[in-house]
């Protein structure tokens, strides 16, 4: 990996990336972004607008739930928690990705890369 990553390729998976972070433990917005940055070996930086859009969508789909944390530094942090529904969605997204990855490998790399 390295350099710029096509944001079009990534965009469809932001929801799953967030679910992956929340799968480990409950977290708030900025820490979710940091975790994704860390998980990508500092190659992918999720932008704030995309983060909030995804969080809103996941919450409305009942895949995550939110609660307010304790007062800190002049404000409360909003924490997100993965729901059983979100967990199921995460696992099926991983499965789908595995299938898609194998298929796309075959389709765009051709026979010479088959192992």
């Amino acid at each position: 990996m390295g350099g710029r990553i096509s944001s079009d390729l990534i965009r469809g998976h932001i929801d799953t990336m967030i679910l992956r972070v929340l799968y480990e433990n409950d977290n708030y917005g900025y820490e979710i972004m940091k975790a994704i940055y860390r998980n990508s070996d500092e190659n992918y930086d999720l932008k704030e607008p995309s983060l909030y859009t995804s969080l809103k969508r996941l919450e409305s789909q009942k895949m995550i739930s939110s609660y307010w944390g304790d007062e800190s530094q002049g404000g409360r942090r909003k924490y997100y928690k993965i729901t059983p529904l979100g967990l199921k969605a995460y696992h099926s997204a991983v499965e789908e990705w595995n299938i898609a990855r194998d298929l796309i490998d075959k389709l765009i790399k051709g026979g010479n890369c088959n192992e």
Binding site: Y30, E31, M33, E48, Y52, Q73, G74, G75, K78
Partner: peptide, 17 residues
């Protein structure tokens, strides 16, 4: 107001970082 507070606390965390 909730959204505003969420955005603010996240940005503040980032700033401190």
């Amino acid at each position: 107001r909730d959204l505003k507070e969420e955005v603010y606390t996240n940005l503040e965390a980032k700033r401190m970082d």
